[in-house]
């Protein structure tokens, strides 16, 4: 097992050093004519107005939380998915029981999913619409 992961480690090290290396090669070859105008932020040719580090929509945060929860669920399901086939083929009669266990696990989470859906949390433009109505 360690030999395989050692290859991954080598890959990660090579990958991390590849970008600086490419930039270094470029640095030798490419021109460099610095100019204050060149270094301004691009805003379609206009003078940039204000910074862009502003607060943004909270929806992004909600999406990230939703993702994290489903991600944890998927991670918990992976080891079971690996053994599922063996349970189905070898243990006679236990197949449907194991299926029920898995279905219960997913089913409980689907309640939350249905809740979010019914309450309209998957609608991106909901906030602006409700503002117009109120």
């Amino acid at each position: 097992m360690y030999t395989q992961f050692a290859t991954i480690l080598i890959f990660l090290i090579v990958g991390a050093s590849m970008v600086p290396l490419m930039l270094l090669v470029g640095k030798i070859l490419r021109p460099s004519n610095p100019d204050p105008k060149k270094l301004t932020t691009y805003e379609c040719g206009e003078e940039p107005v204000g910074g862009s580090w502003v607060q943004f929509n909270l929806r992004f945060y909600v999406i990230a939380i939703l993702f994290l929860i489903f991600d944890v669920e998927v991670v918990l399901m992976f080891p079971i998915a690996v053994t599922f086939r063996q349970w189905m083929t070898s243990q006679a009669g236990k197949g449907l029981l194991v299926f029920a266990e898995v279905a219960l696990f997913i089913g409980i989470l689907l309640i939350g999913f249905a809740y979010a859906w019914v309450k309209g949390d998957f609608e991106w433009i909901k906030t602006t619409r409700s503002k117009k109505e109120s």
Binding site: R59, E101, L109, Y115, A116
Partner: peptide, 21 residues
Amino acid sequence: PFELASILLLAALIGAIILAR
């Protein structure tokens, strides 16, 4: 614990949605 983890995730999901709303 495996099934309870699902309930925990459900609680986290609903909590996050209510907090955000």
